[in-house]
Nucleic acid binder design. Structure first.
Lengths: 144, 144
DNA sequence: GTCTTTTTGTTACAAATGCAACTGATTTTA
DNA sequence: TAAAATCAGTTGCATTTGTAACAAAAAGAC
């Protein structure tokens, strides 16, 4: 029925990508979760604000391809924990400018630095050449 | 504050992997979802049984690194839809041998073939060399 | 001007997941 | 062999997510 030459899950890129994504996120996730009580979306929002400066939720949604409900909830959670503040824009009161508080910036700096080290430890498994190929393939697959 | 040489989300492998995994799964996911009403876990369980033959839930859990509750629920759903049957093992009545029904096998054959084509279309974006590097990096990252 | 449409962001409800407690079967220990 | 520990699998509950309906503000039609 199923001979050993057959197409295997280990050959199926979506499967491999999912496993690799989960596995490679675990330790970092554990850090921001236990240290700052953040969820993945909250970490992403924090990162975007820390990295690219203040912006509105819609702007972030376009940049990061995140749905507005995800952002809305992450922003609320971050606001409750005093990591960011919102400022209604006078030009259009539907828009809110999001920006990190000092607390948020401190968390960003810490996580940013850790992310960099963490990433390096992942990359160190591979040669420079492999890293470059991997990165460019992932960018293509992610349609970035 | 944040200069443009700074470490970016696009350099962060866990992030890239997550996006690539999501994006690359979308179309295939849509197929088994609309065609067979399956969830991701159900497709994985179906695939394992179709590809590797009958086995117990625990065996599958080890093979696929899936938690037993996920398997339990996926098995129940597949059983309800008549895609598989269970057989209590006489040697140890805690164990249940899972095997695909004819219906399940048909679904597996269809999805297996599609997965292969789908995978090929993903792979076609890259050179043979790149494909090999990508695959080996992902296997390492996934700790397989 | 006011009526309709679009846009920003929130909320409500259903589905999916993770974790821990549970049942029933088997093995170990004393 | 009786009590305790272990193991396979299930269920319940709390958390997270996805979808769609929603309210408020702004823009456009007329």
């Amino acid at each position: 029925m199923s001979n050993s030459e057959e197409f295997d899950l280990r050959d199926f890129f979506p499967y491999l990508l999912n496993l690799a994504a989960e596995e490679s996120s675990l330790d970092f996730q554990a850090y921001y979760k236990t240290r700052y009580g953040m969820l993945r979306m909250e970490w992403r929002v924090l990162f975007h604000l820390g990295r690219y400066g203040e912006m509105t939720a819609t702007e972030m949604g376009q940049r990061a391809k995140l749905h507005k409900t995800k952002i809305s909830r992450a922003v609320k959670a971050l606001e409750n924990r005093r990591f960011l503040t919102r400022h209604e824009m006078e030009s259009d009161r539907r828009n809110e400018l999001l920006q990190l508080s000092a607390l948020g910036k401190a968390a960003y700096d810490d996580l940013h630095e850790l992310a960099q080290k963490y990433n390096q430890s992942l990359a160190d498994q591979f040669s420079k050449k492999e890293q470059a190929v991997l990165r460019s393939c992932l960018l293509k697959l992610a349609k970035l």
